Simulated scan of single mutants.
Amino acid sequence: MKKQPAMKIPKSLFAQFLDWLTILVFAAVVIFLITQFSALPDRVPGHYDGKGDVDRWGSKMELWILPLIGVLLWIPMTVLEKYPHLFNYMNLREDNIEAQYRNGQLMLNVLKNESVLLFSYLTFQGIRVATGGTEGLGIFFMPIFLVVIIGSMIIFLIRMLKL
């Protein structure tokens, strides 16, 4: 297997915007969790089924797991974004290396931000369900989430094949 050339690709303005938007939303949700924590009941949603209904209740400390997972995803994916030459490409050629690296870098950025926004939303909804503001995620949560994540991957895969 031939080693791909390393190339420093600056982060696009769109990727920077997504990062800042996600950081702001994530911070707002963490602040909301901190401010609401003492008012939360001892039992909060621990898991949801495919229809968005709560199918397991747990300790309110479990609400911290989702932001923790978000941070544990964010950090390594942000570092990996800086090294697009480490990604696996289907049609990397001399004439499209930079374009493929930019596409791969943006794909990782979009998936990273979608994932962290998902965990932020789940944390927010967990607080709302625990306090009686809603009953679950709703039946459309899972299909929308899957369309967004899989749709993003398909879009970037098509872009990669066209380059």
Rank of each mutant, 00 (worst) to 15 (best):
M1K: 13
M1H: 14
K3S: 12
K3T: 12
K3C: 02
K3A: 13
Q4C: 01
M7W: 04
I9V: 15
P10D: 11
S12T: 12
L13K: 15
F14H: 06
A15I: 05
A15W: 09
A15D: 13
Q16R: 15
Q16K: 15
L18Q: 12
L21N: 09
I23K: 14
V25D: 11
V25P: 08
A28L: 15
A28H: 06
V29E: 07
V30M: 09
V30W: 06
F32E: 04
Q36S: 15
F37T: 05
F37W: 12
S38C: 00
A39Y: 09
D42W: 04
R43C: 00
G46D: 07
H47T: 06
D49M: 11
G50D: 11
G52L: 08
G52S: 10
G52P: 04
D53C: 10
V54Q: 14
D55P: 10
W57L: 12
W57E: 11
G58N: 12
M61A: 14
L63P: 04
W64I: 08
I65Y: 14
L66R: 11
L66I: 03
P67G: 06
L68D: 02
V71N: 07
V71I: 15
V71Y: 12
L72Y: 04
L72E: 02
L73K: 01
I75R: 11
P76M: 09
M77K: 03
T78I: 07
V79P: 03
V79Q: 12
V79S: 06
L80A: 15
E81N: 11
P84T: 00
P84E: 02
H85N: 14
L86S: 07
F87I: 00
N88P: 05
Y89V: 01
Y89M: 03
M90Q: 09
N91T: 01
N91A: 08
N91E: 00
D95L: 02
N96H: 06
N96M: 07
N96C: 04
E98S: 10
A99H: 06
A99Y: 02
Q100K: 02
Y101C: 01
Y101P: 01
Q105L: 07
M107R: 05
L108C: 03
L108P: 01
N109F: 02
V110W: 07
L111H: 00
E114M: 04
S115H: 03
S115R: 03
V116A: 08
V116W: 08
F119K: 01
F119Q: 01
Y121E: 02
T123H: 11
T123M: 09
T123G: 09
F124G: 01
Q125K: 15
Q125R: 13
I127L: 07
R128P: 00
V129E: 10
A130M: 11
T131N: 14
T134C: 14
G136E: 06
G136R: 00
L137S: 08
G138Y: 05
F141E: 08
F141G: 01
F141W: 11
P143I: 09
I144Y: 10
I144S: 12
F145V: 05
F145H: 08
L146C: 13
V147C: 14
V148Q: 08
I149N: 11
I150F: 15
I150A: 13
I150N: 05
I150D: 03
S152N: 08
I154P: 03
I154C: 03
I154T: 02
I154G: 01
I154E: 05
F156M: 01
L157S: 08
I158L: 15
I158R: 09
R159K: 15
L161C: 02
L161P: 00
K162L: 04
K162I: 03
L163H: 05
